[in-house]
Design a protein around this nucleic acid. Sequence first.
DNA 1: AGCACGCCGACT
DNA 2: GTCGGCGTGCTC
Length: 819
Amino acid sequence: MEKYAKIIVNNNSSHTDELYTYKIPEFLIDEVQIGHRVLISFGRTNKPIEGFVFDMSPNKDGDFRVKEVVDILDKDPILKKRDVELVKWMREEYICTFMDAINCIYPKGIRLTNYKIVKLISCEYDSISSKEQILIDEIKNNKNEMKIDKLVTKFGKSINNTIKKLKDKRVLDIHWEYKSIKNEKYIQNISLNVESDIDDLIESLNKKRAFKQAEIIRFLKDNKNAEINDVMSILSITKSSINSLEKKGYINIQKLDYYRKPKSDYIIKQKNIDLNDEQMEALKILKSSIDDYNKIPFLLHGVTGSGKTEVYINTIKEALIKGLDSIVLVPEISLTPQTIARFKNNFGDIIAVFHSKLSSGEKYDEYRRVKEGKAKIIIGARSALFAPCNNLGVIIIDEFHENSYKSDSNPKYSTIEVAKFIATIENATLIFGSATPPIEEYYKAQMGEYELIELKKRANNKEMPKIEVVDMREELDKGNKTIFSSRLYEAIKSNLENNNQTILFLNRRGYASFISCRKCGYTFKCSNCEISLTYHKGINKAKCHYCGFEERKLSECPSCGSNYIKEFGLGTQRIEEEIKKYFKDARVLRMDKDTTSKKGSHEKILNEFKNRNADILVGTQMIGKGLDFEHVTLVGILCGDMALKIPDFRSSEKAFQTISQVAGRSGRADLNGKVILQAYDIDHYAIKHAVEHDFKSFYNDEIKIRQAFNYVPFDNMISVVISGKNEKKVINNIQKLYDSIVYLLRKKNYNSFDFILGPNPCIVSKINQNYRWQILVKDLDVEIKLLKGIIKYICIQKREFIFDKDINISIDINPVNIL
DNA sequence: AGCACGCCGACT
DNA sequence: GTCGGCGTGCTC
């Protein structure tokens, strides 16, 4: 019989990041399981906190005092066995605490809060100071009991001493209380419970001047079942009349789970799509893998428009037939109603959708639908991977090259790696889909770690759109100083004449990318970040795209005092303006972060464009994601080599991906498409191969560079960024980090440290008043495990001894960018 | 992270 | 003498 539980405590501290042993009381011995969330008391003051059972044992395994588990907090374990394994693995892999990893898995909307209460227990006291008297009076005024938090906000921190003194005098008592919050949303249905004649009842209520109640009865006579909130708003009444009717027994109130509320979904007419040979072949392989017990992940490399989604949907159908759940991950910006509708049309109500716009209550509702087996297909951004499926069959990561699959907060996990871990445990079929797979992942497919499935043809059998390259240096030589090359200008013009639609892409919002003084060259920068300010014309403000800082555009140079201030560089706003200038009758829409901030505005713009209420759509990378417009025959890429200017080892890959994705928007239906790519660095291999739609050649070039410069997949990289308000302190701390790493490596007999880069200021050296310095470590000569161990030891276990308190340490294993 | 213990200087 | 400041170490 297991009498002891090893528990992770939710104590928000890196010092308690270990298993604590608690005794399981008799009454819970048959209840507690691994993964249960339990209530325990912790620390000297027996603070009630939640804990997670990670292990159980008949012995306590050591010499220490043990406390008892107070109770279980949920009927069923909140973590599955595989989640416990996953948490342990993530903690090692991404150098984080148990709780950091648990927080990825357990749903928002559940939480346990605690607070300390002071209670007045005796009124017999003497020799009381005036401060003490004030405190006693305050507590008396609050029914002899108060939260200490409240007293601290009222009187300040020093009140704690007064409380303690009164506690010693046995005037006050201190104890903890807690509240277990489960954000479960219910709806309440009311229905009539009247046996006698209803009209008689209405009359008698009216006689008693209970007009509102009579109204409710009359309403329910016509509407058998109604939701309480609807009744209240329709009849403009309050809950009290409903309550008194219930008390009298005339109506029933029924509490229903919110998610059982029938949803009124719109259905789009379903086209029956026939799969082509390639799709059929892919589907055959994927379907048969579901039952396979010895499978590896699949890399589905399909060109844009090759119909990957149809393959996904049919694979999921197969899983459903076998009674298995599926998870579909998409980048956050692809979580549009269009995507969701496409799946809903195929699968109806058994879909759960997770996205960032849901409230924590709504997220919890979806969570429960999955957990209770009511939803069998989960669609969402990366966090949906942790959904509590009962029997997982398929995991799909669509557009898996997207940066958003790497978490940006602690733990900085890679969705790809976590998915592999989960798929292995659950024996799920794992599909990575993309037209432009990440180089390191494609390499793994080449090495046989993944099975490569290729869709080389577009589903509609159309050719890939032809990409014409325009060298903007030549345009300038020819005297064209505008932002449109003559070829793009002509193409837009003829497209307008032929009544076809055009997409113009530029991956920068705002009007101008920087503002500078033409006399002295001074560039306006954000006062919080080391970032040039972007000029936004409509509001005439200079904005920082990192921290949101904005100020009125200055007309005078703060450095030399001249008035020659000018905006340089391009932004989507400027494109929109130029279009309106050159093509007066063209109807233009712009889609970027500035025009899509309002809820639903994203869909509105897309629908407008889809319904051909506009001729030209100008946008940032938002328009590159899975959009399917039949009448788009021209795509203009304005600054195709912009990504190449970013000093990051993935910049070539990003440039290739962006061009491929955006170009893929052209000619998706019956009309042939064309792409015009404007760039300066037109001989760059990323541009050249993108123009030829030749991923393999790009891969072959890029993989050599990765190997030559020791980047992934050949070598791993760990980035440690130290940031803080005080620059000197940050530099001092990063140096200590460097010295500590070197010291520990020397102890292991390493004497050369070329594989440690830095410390250097980050490329973005300041964000939000925080100075940022970085050390990059590659596992050239040293095992990655040892490096992780050393960094964990320095940054987590010995953090207090080595670093100042007011600095932040961010550890990223194989970061997606090193900015 | 909290919280208690404990050591030390500044006040009635 | 004791009030109150913060440095140190522990939490099953």
